[in-house]
Design a protein around this nucleic acid. Structure first.
Length: 711
DNA sequence: GCGATCAGTT
DNA sequence: CACAACTGATCGC
C-alpha cells in the first residue's frame, strides 16, 4: 500500500495520488491509477470545495483512468476538472498559484505502468530537474530500456529522483513469474476444465480491484468463452474489454462476486447463484489469483498450485518483483530514490540499503574508498576472517543460529551479515536452511511430490503440503563435492578474449559464464547476446563449477529469499543467485557499486544509453570481492564447491492433463530491442581501464552534471 | 449522518 | 503468498 505523501521534493506544487491535508494546496493533481489507496481524499468535501473555488486546478491522468474514475458516481463531480493526457505524449502544464499569480511550467509524460488498466508512471521535466513517479508498476526486466521517452537520444535521461513502487522490494520476492507464464498457466487449467463438458465451469476468485482485465480478455479470446461479471459498466466505453465480458450467467468462466462467495463455492454454487446447467449440476473449480514468489535459487516454477479438491491458486502479480525493481532502478540510475511503499515487515532503512547502491549519489559517494587495489585486498582479508576457526562474529551468531553443522560454520558464514541484520531473521533463515539441507550430485533435478521449498515463509506449508514439489534430498556427503573438484568452467571459452575484472586482478579461471541477470536484464531477450560476459544462456542446464564457495550461499540464505540449504559444502546456485550477491553483505555492499560505477564510467560516453547488459560490463563482477574470497578458498582446498545448475520446479502430478510447466524463464513479456547506438566495449579498452583501476587512478569519465547541486 | 481510522477478513 | 477492498466498531464533527 502506498504511503507516498503526495508531494515530490522537486515539485512540491504538484500532488500525486494523495489529495488530503497539505495536498489540497497543490496547483495540479495527478492520479496514476484507480486503486483506492491512491485516491485518498479524492472525494472529500475539502477537495470538492477546493475545486469549486478554482478555475485552474486540474486532475491529470490517463484516458482510461479518467473513464474508470468517472464511471463511479461518487467521483462524477470531477468531470469538469479532469484532463486526460495521452500516454507517451509529453505535455506542458502551467502551474499557476492563483493567489500570487506565480507561474511554473513543467512537462509531464505518462508512461505505461503495467499495473492495472489505465495505470501510468509520471515523468516530470522542469527547472528542478527530471523526476519519475512510478505509481504502482509491474514492468518486466528490460522494459525501462524500451521506453523511448525515458531516453534522450541514445542515452537514459538524467533523472534526479525516482519515487518508486517498492511493494516487493525484498529479496524474498526475488522472482515472480511473468505475466505470460501466469496467464498461460491459468489458460491451460481453464481450458482443460471447461473442455470436459458444458457443466464444467471456472470461477476466478478475484479481488474487487482493477487489474484482472487482461486475464479475462485473454481467456475469452483463447477459449472463446466470455467471462461473467457482476458489473461491467465501468468498461462501457472500452469495447475491447467489454466484448469479452458478459452479464449472462450461462457461461463457463465466472469472475462474479458476492459477499459470501466462498460459502457459495463450498455449496457448489457460483457467486451469481448459478448451480446447474439444463438441470445438470455444475462442476466448479475456483482459481484464486495470488502473488507467488520465488527466491533466487529457483528458476522455473509452477504457476498453478492446487490447494484443495476443487481449488487452485494461480500466480498473479500487480507489482514488479525484487529483481524487476532492481533492474528498473539500476537502468534509470537516478541520483535519488524514494520508496513509495514499505514492503510488509520491512523498514525504510532496509529498503534504502537495497535501492541506494543503484543510485548515482551513492555510487559516487562511495567511490574514493575503494580506489586502490590495496584497499580491496584488505577488505577481502578482513572478510576472510570468518573462515578462521575463531571468527569474531561467531560468538554473536551462534546463539541465533541453532543448528549449523560444524563443517559449515567456518566456511559458510559471512562475517559481516549477521552482525547487523536482525537476529530474528537469521534464526528463521538458518533454521529453514538446515531443515532443507540438500545436496545434489547432478544438475538434473530430482523431485518428489511433497512440500514446497520455494521460500522461507512458513505459511507455505498450509496450502502446498499436498501439491508442490520438493527436491529429493540426498545424503549430504562429499560425493558431489568430489564429483566436481578440480573442474573448471567450460564456459569461459566463449569470452576468452575479453579481459575480465576478476581475472585481471586476482582470480583463477573458475566460473566465467554467468551473466548477472539481475543487472543485465533481458540481454538475451534483446536477441543480441551482446552482453560482455553473457553466454548463450545464463542458466543453461549445463553443470559447471563456480568459484564461489558456500559462504556466499550462506548469506544468500540469510538475506532471506530461500529456505533451503546454504549450509552444505555443495549447494546449488543459479545465476540469479549470484546476482543477489550484490547486496548480500553489509561489508561488501559498498564495494559493488563502485566497481559498477567505474566500469560504467569508463566506457565511451556514447555507450551510456545502452541497456544495462551492454553498458555495465562489471556488474556481475561487482561481486568480485566475494568472488576473490571464493577463489582463494578454492585455491586453498583445490576444490570448487559450488555447483551451478538450473533448478526446475514442476508439479504436474496434481494437475492432471495439464501442461503447466513453462519453458519461458523470462519475466519479459516482450522482445526488448537494443537501445540505438549500443555497443560492446572493446577488450583492449577494458584491459586499459583495468590497468588504471589497479593503479588506483580515477578513470571516471562522468561529467559533473547539473543535478549534482542536489547532492 | 458522514467520514476518517483501525482491526479483521478475504 | 501480503494486493486491495470490504466490513464493522469507534470516534469526531
Amino acid at each position: 500500500m502506498s504511503r507516498f505523501g503526495g508531494r515530490m521534493r522537486e515539485y512540491p506544487a504538484l500532488s500525486i495520488d494523495r489529495f488530503d491535508h497539505h495536498n489540497l494546496r497543490a496547483r495540479a493533481f495527478f492520479l496514476s491509477h484507480c486503486h483506492k489507496d491512491h485516491m485518498k481524499g479524492l472525494r472529500a468535501p475539502a477537495l470538492k470545495s477546493r475545486l469549486e473555488g478554482s478555475l485552474k486546478v486540474k486532475l491529470y491522468c490517463s484516458p482510461v483512468t479518467k473513464e474508470l474514475l468517472l464511471s463511479n458516481w461518487k467521483y462524477k463531480f470531477w468531470e469538469n476538472h479532469i484532463v486526460a493526457l495521452e500516454v507517451e505524449t509529453p505535455t506542458q502544464i502551467s502551474l499557476v498559484d492563483e493567489t500570487s499569480g506565480e507561474k511554473e511550467d513543467v512537462v509531464v509524460t505518462l508512461l505505461p505502468a503495467g499495473h492495472c488498466p489505465g495505470s501510468v508512471m509520471f515523468l516530470f521535466e522542469g527547472e528542478n530537474g527530471t523526476v519519475l513517479y512510478t505509481g504502482d508498476f509491474r514492468l518486466a526486466k528490460g522494459e525501462a530500456a524500451r521506453m523511448e521517452l525515458l531516453h534522450s537520444g541514445t542515452r537514459v535521461k538524467d533523472i534526479q529522483s525516482v519515487y518508486l513502487d517498492t511493494t516487493f522490494c525484498d529479496p524474498k520476492f526475488y522472482h515472480i513469474p511473468s505475466r505470460e507464464e501466469c496467464l498461460n498457466g491459468i489458460l491451460e487449467l481453464a481450458r482443460s476444465w471447461t473442455s470436459l463438458s458444458r457443466c464444467h465451469v471456472v470461477w476466478l476468485n478475484c479481488k474487487a480491484a482493477y487489474g484482472y482485465e487482461y486475464l479475462f480478455v485473454n481467456l475469452s479470446e483463447e477459449l472463446g468463452i466470455k467471462v461473467h461479471t457482476n458489473k461491467p459498466d465501468m468498461f462501457r466505453n472500452m469495447p475491447e474489454i467489454l466484448c469479452h465480458l458478459t452479464t449472462d450467467r450461462h457461461t463457463q468462466i465466472h469472475a462474479c462476486r458476492h459477499p459470501w462467495d466462498d460459502d457459495c463455492f463450498r455449496g457448489n454454487r457460483l457467486p451469481c447463484g448459478l448451480t446447474c446447467q439444463n438441470g445438470t449440476p455444475l462442476h466448479i473449480i475456483s482459481i484464486k489469483p495470488s502473488t507467488m514468489w520465488f527466491g533466487e535459487r529457483i528458476k522455473k516454477t509452477n504457476v498453478i498450485v492446487r490447494t484443495g479438491e476443487r481449488t487452485y491458486r494461480a500466480c498473479f502479480s500487480f507489482h514488479s518483483s525484487y529483481s524487476e525493481i532492481k533492474d528498473f532502478l539500476s537502468y534509470i540510475s537516478p541520483v535519488n530514490v524514494y520508496p513509495n511503499v514499505l514492503p510488509l515487515g520491512g523498514t525504510e532503512d532496509k529498503v534504502m540499503e537495497i535501492l541506494k547502491p543503484l543510485c548515482r549519489s551513492y555510487r559516487r559517494n562511495m567511490e574514493p574508498r575503494y580506489k586502490p587495489l590495496g584497499t580491496l585486498k584488505r577488505v577481502h582479508r578482513r572478510e576472510l576472517s570468518d573462515t578462521d576457526e575463531d571468527d569474531l562474529f561467531d560468538a554473536e551468531l551462534t546463539s541465533a543460529r541453532p543448528k549449523i553443522p560444524k563443517q559449515q560454520t567456518g566456511e559458510s558464514r559471512p562475517s559481516s551479515t549477521g552482525q547487523s541484520e536482525n537476529a530474528e531473521g537469521n534464526i528463521n533463515e538458518s533454521t529453514v536452511s538446515y531443515k532443507a539441507t540438500t545436496t545434489y550430485t547432478s544438475p538434473q533435478v530430482d523431485f518428489v511430490d511433497c512440500e514446497e521449498s520455494n521460500d522461507d515463509d512458513e505459511n507455505d506449508e498450509e496450502e502446498s503440503e499436498k501439491n508442490t514439489v520438493q527436491f529429493l534430498s540426498h545424503e549430504p556427503d562429499a560425493t558431489s563435492t568430489a564429483n566436481f573438484s578440480g573442474v573448471t568452467s567450460d564456459q569461459q571459452d566463449s569470452n576468452a578474449d575479453v579481459p575480465r575484472w576478476d581475472e585481471f586482478f586476482m582470480c583463477n579461471k573458475l566460473e566465467e559464464s554467468s551473466e548477472n541477470e539481475d543487472n543485465i536484464p533481458s540481454s538475451a531477450d534483446a536477441g543480441g547476446s551482446q552482453s560482455l560476459f553473457s553466454d548463450s544462456d545464463g542458466v543453461s542446464d549445463s553443470t559447471h563449477i563456480s568459484s564461489q564457495n558456500s559462504s556466499q550461499s550462506t548469506h544468500i540464505s540469510e538475506q532471506g529469499s530461500q529456505g533451503w540449504d546454504s549450509q552444505m559444502d555443495t549447494v546449488l546456485i543459479t545465476s540469479q543467485e549470484r546476482s543477489a550477491l550484490d547486496f548480500s553483505k553489509g561489508g561488501s555492499r559498498a564495494v559493488v557499486p563502485v566497481l559498477q560505477e567505474t566500469a560504467r564510467d569508463s566506457q565511451p560516453e556514447s555507450s551510456k544509453g545502452k541497456p544495462p547488459g551492454q553498458s555495465r560490463p562489471c556488474v556481475y563482477d561487482g561481486t568480485c570481492d566475494l568472488k576473490s574470497k571464493g577463489c582463494e578458498k578454492a585455491a586453498e582446498t583445490g576444490t570448487a564447491r559450488v555447483q551451478d545448475a538450473l533448478v526446475e520446479l514442476s508439479d504436474s502430478s496434481r494437475t492432471p492433463d495439464l501442461e503447466l510447466r513453462r519453458d519461458s524463464q523470462s519475466s519479459s513479456d516482450f522482445e526488448i530491442p537494443l537501445t540505438p547506438g549500443a555497443e560492446v566495449p572493446q577488450p583492449d579498452k577494458l584491459h586499459y581501464l583495468y590497468e588504471k583501476l589497479a593503479a588506483g587512478e580515477n578513470i571516471s569519465l562522468r561529467k559533473k552534471s547539473p543535478e549534482d547541486r542536489y547532492n
